[in-house]
Amino acid sequence: MKIGFIGTGSMGSILIEAFIESGALDPEQIIAGNRSLDKVLRLADRFPGLRAAADNGQIARLCKTIFICVKPHEYKHVIEDLAPWATPEKIVVSITSPVLIKHLEDLLPCKIAKVIPSITNYALSGAALCMYSERMLPSDREWLESLFSKISTPHHIEEQHTRITSDLSSCGPAFLCFFAEQFVHAAVEITGIEREEATRLVSDMMLGTAKLLTEKGFTPASLQERVCVPGGITAEGILLMQSYLDGMFQQLIHTTHAKYNSDLSKVESLFYGQKA
């Protein structure tokens, strides 16, 4: 079965590489296209057998499952290219959060799924957030989740929770790395430790912490409790962070949701001509 990818930017290329490196897909199964053909040709050079498409229509014609990995403002053009070939048995998978399932169902007669990946999938880890149209059969859902299980832990979520689940699973790695970067910067500035050494220590710490949370039964709260000896150094640090970060994460969620709602309004305008 041929699998198509429209868009080989950051996340599109991550998915392709992860599927191939995990053994979920062979390069010969993949047909990929991008506005910049050079990006696809570089992937084809790395993974012999992967086919570079001349246009989106070729992908739609030859593939039963098509991943759309482009920015929201590019969707209308892509859908116009897909429409002549989007027969009811085909599956279109969107990875873009503000493009709703109903947007695609209104314009395409095929089966629709939405899967929000994470950069952690590049390490064959992390979550994939899965949402489905009613046109998707149980066997379609099972096949798609089986595919994603090779590079992630699939989570079936309600579409109304797209933003907050994406904050946690997809934006979260960047948020955590911002914290790590600031921690390293302060350590270097104040103590003179080598940046490379501090970065290695923080990276190993984050990996070990993730294993405790996912493999050893800890929760964030129980892990803190285990490390924080009353009156100890870690407890003092937690008290400081509590005083500075009070309300910050609530503001963070309000900020990401406001941006999502703005993007959603623009998508509505793009698809239906409504005023954004």
Rank of each mutant, 00 (worst) to 15 (best):
E17R: 03
E17M: 04
A18I: 01
A18V: 02
A18N: 04
F19Q: 05
I20M: 03
I20H: 00
E21C: 02
A24Y: 00
A24S: 00
A24H: 00
D26E: 08
E28T: 07
E28F: 05
Q29N: 03
Q29R: 02
I30K: 04
I30E: 06
A32E: 08
A32L: 03
G33C: 09
N34L: 00
N34Y: 01
R35Q: 07
L37Q: 07
D38K: 13
D38A: 12
D38N: 09
K39E: 02
V40R: 08
V40I: 00
L41S: 11
R42H: 09
R42K: 11
L43D: 00
A44H: 02
D45Q: 13
D45Y: 10
D45C: 09
R46T: 09
P48K: 01
G49S: 02
L50D: 00
L50M: 06
A52R: 12
A53R: 03
A53G: 10
A54D: 08
A54L: 12
D55P: 07
D55Y: 14
D55I: 10
Q58Y: 13
I59V: 14
I59F: 14
A60C: 05
A60R: 04
R61L: 15
R61V: 09
R61W: 12
L62S: 09
T65W: 05
I66W: 06
F67A: 09
F67C: 11
I68Y: 10
C69E: 08
C69M: 14
C69F: 01
V70Y: 13
K71V: 12
K71I: 10
P72E: 07
P72V: 07
H73K: 06
Y75A: 15
K76F: 11
K76D: 14
H77D: 15
V78K: 07
I79R: 13
E80F: 11
E80V: 13
E80M: 10
D81K: 12
L82M: 08
L82C: 04
A83W: 10
P84E: 03
W85L: 06
W85M: 07
T87K: 09
P88C: 06
P88F: 13
K90H: 12
K90W: 14
I91V: 09
I91R: 06
V92H: 01
S94F: 05
I95W: 07
T96I: 06
S97Y: 12
P98W: 07
P98D: 10
I101D: 14
I101G: 12
I101A: 08
H103S: 15
L104S: 07
E105A: 13
E105L: 05
E105S: 09
D106K: 14
L107V: 13
P109M: 13
P109E: 14
P109W: 15
K111I: 10
K111H: 09
K111Q: 15
I112C: 13
V115W: 13
V115H: 13
V115N: 13
I116E: 04
I116H: 06
P117V: 01
P117G: 05
S118K: 03
T120V: 05
N121A: 11
Y122M: 15
Y122V: 04
Y122G: 14
A123I: 03
L124Y: 03
L124D: 00
S125H: 08
G126N: 05
G126Q: 07
G126W: 02
A128I: 02
A128T: 10
L129F: 01
C130F: 10
C130N: 04
M131T: 12
M131K: 06
